[in-house]
Design a protein around this nucleic acid. Sequence first.
RNA 1: GGAGGGAUGACGGAGCGGUUGAACGUGCCCGACUCGAAAUCGGGUAGGCGGGCAAAAACCCGUCUCGUGGGUUCAAAUCCCACUCCCUCCGCCA
Length: 426
Amino acid sequence: MLDLKFIRAHPDRVAAAARAKGVPLEPEVILALDARRRELLVQTETLRNQRNVASEDIARRKREGQDAAAAIREMQRVAARIKAQEEELAGVERRLEELLVQVPNLPHPEVPLGEDESSNQVVRHWGTPPQFPFAPQAHWDLGTRLGILDFERAGKVTGARFTFYRGAGALLERALINFMVDLHVTEHGCTEIFPPFLANTASLFGTGQLPKLREEMFRVEGNDYFLIPTAEVPVTNLHRDEILRGEDLPLYYAAYSACFRAEAGAAGRDTRGLIRQHQFNKVELVKFVRPENSYRELESLVADAAAVLERLELPYRVVLLCTGDLSFASAKTYDLEVYLPSYQGYKEISSCSNFEDFQARRANIRFRPAGGGKAEHVHTLNGSGLAVGRTVAAILENHQQADGSVRIPAALRPYMRGMERIAPPC
RNA sequence: GGAGGGAUGACGGAGCGGUUGAACGUGCCCGACUCGAAAUCGGGUAGGCGGGCAAAAACCCGUCUCGUGGGUUCAAAUCCCACUCCCUCCGCCA
């Protein structure tokens, strides 16, 4: 959420930013409602003041044993007017709030202007895509032949876009989760969090999934719970409505969670394999930082996520998203894209964003500077470190061998009971 | 699921219709004492919104906020209703 005062002062910039993100927006409507609200507010407050002054007078008279009946009768009329004013004001505020929460965050000035991913900028590459002296298999074929992924039975038991992991496949998934969390905790200074996998509407509103992405989520019937689409939601909301101590910043968290996405509107995209599932595992990094450090923190967040790919010997590239590809809440986002032979190209495996104070304002997360002073909104960042299912796909495809086996990268072996390869059944 | 108790500022904790935006304590900040620190003493210390106000800050004024939402009343932290969350006991349960 943007500061209403900022919108008031720079409606043109807000409109331009929204346009760049592809969000239709009429700041004039917001400004008109805002003006009306202030007008009503002044009237209402004047009446309230009249009431408060009179109440004190009534209290004094009663204390002194004087008659207050006339004043009370007068105030009954004022009270009725206040009530009517307050109702009108509440209506205007409701409409204003409704529009305000739909205003997207402003892109950072360095973000390239563009409508879609074709305007994204490749920032750097790491590693080289493997050259196979044989016809490489896609991970869905490879995994099925190895007996470690079972898409068919998952379709029977649950439905499309679900998977059973089996044997070494299940172990690989679990090993990756532990490897990633350990790396972030022991080398990147994160505190490990294991969050709830359901969150309420206030939390989803705080991180910006609501109101816009309601259709993207699974809702639990009969209560106020949604399955989380990412651990970003519970972990960022950990500090909702809190004032943090300035000396405690920055806070770094690493959280494993399952993630659930309805993938409405993605019909026909990535229908095979692990790439686009309704349920997938992810290790998420979340940072709460001082505003002046947030862009430096974004760079180190990208480095932390990239470290996982490097240890797993997976070639990747870093992409700076253009305005049109930037999410609603983000000011600047780098995607990490891993090379996938089956796509003959790079596929997103991590998304690292700086939200500046956009989420902090929605979720009311502030800090008090050391030495006292006014509480300020923190800046929040998060990034995948990494999406686990896509990492499994990348390992299977990039480390596959001519005989149909898959080499386990050395860094992962301690988490796989020393296993060096996953071999096909005899 | 049944019975009861509770939710107040950064934190602990009073208040239970009318100078209570809120005693007291802790923490934090400023000052005094000290070579310096501790201890002690003095003072200060909520947030949102709006107006003065013109770009920001400071300041002044008003208003709202004592879990959330409604109600009663001239007036609500205080009374009533609903909801949420927490705690204790019983039952059930991984």
